[in-house]
Design a protein around this nucleic acid. Structure first.
Lengths: 126, 126
DNA sequence: CAGGATCCTTTTTGATACTG
DNA sequence: CAGTATCAAAAAGGATCCTG
């Protein structure tokens, strides 16, 4: 083995302030991304259906978040040549690799919601 | 089996706007929580060390986030009776259950940072 | 050392109305 | 249907200075 072997990839570390992976982590954990990825995990959805599925999101914010996901290569947007327009959103291959980790977090939140809520109550009672 | 068996737990669903699990998920995915939990995963840290470890965080925000984590039962704060003061932070048992899911996400971000970055470049080039 | 107190800026989010 | 435009509000984050 000599110096012509491929060099090790740069060590990304989210704990370092300038590490690009931190912006990636941040985006992936923003307010709506986990919910949208969760919603798309089961298959493509049209804009309107997605909006229904992700309760409480406004069209403006949904559009913004989807654009950003598209930019990051996580979501694919497909426009049908119809009128009225039909637009489908689906996870890309890369996006699909994110779905697992997000589900893990989602499950954690759902499974431990009660514990967190009661911890809050206890804390606030003091 | 009859009706005296424990009833199923309420179905938490983060996709529902008023579901309490959503606030839990949101907190767990806020800007600094994943980084702090990551930093604490390897063991207790004092305030100053934690601040060094989580690059870029200001004392104010670190304090706020830690308080919030304490309130949610994820972090334990221990004050030593010394002068100058010594304060240790560590994950609670509940907090430790969160460390795994967070690591998963952190790893995803680090492993896919390049892919996301180049997707961004491609998108912006158009 | 570990913050608390202030003040201020930036970023995010939301409400509402409108359009191809 | 799938957005866009505009405006307003809020929340988060940051800079700085101070203290037991």
């Amino acid at each position: 083995m000599h110096t012509l072997t491929t060099p090790p990839p740069p060590a990304f570390d989210v704990l370092s302030p300038q590490c690009p992976s931190r912006t990636v982590l941040r985006h992936v954990t923003d307010r709506w991304t986990p919910l949208i990825v969760s919603a798309l995990e089961e298959g493509p959805l049209r804009f309107g259906r997605l909006r229904e599925r992700v309760g409480g999101i406004t069209p403006k914010v949904l559009t913004e978040t989807l654009r950003s996901l598209e930019r990051d290569g996580l979501v694919l947007r497909t426009v049908g040549p119809t009128s009225p327009p039909r637009v489908d959103y689906e996870l890309t291959e890369l996006g699909a690799t994110l779905a697992g980790p997000i589900q893990t977090l989602r499950s954690w939140a759902q499974e431990h919601a009660e514990a967190v809520l009661s911890a809050r109550d206890r804390y606030d009672a003091e």
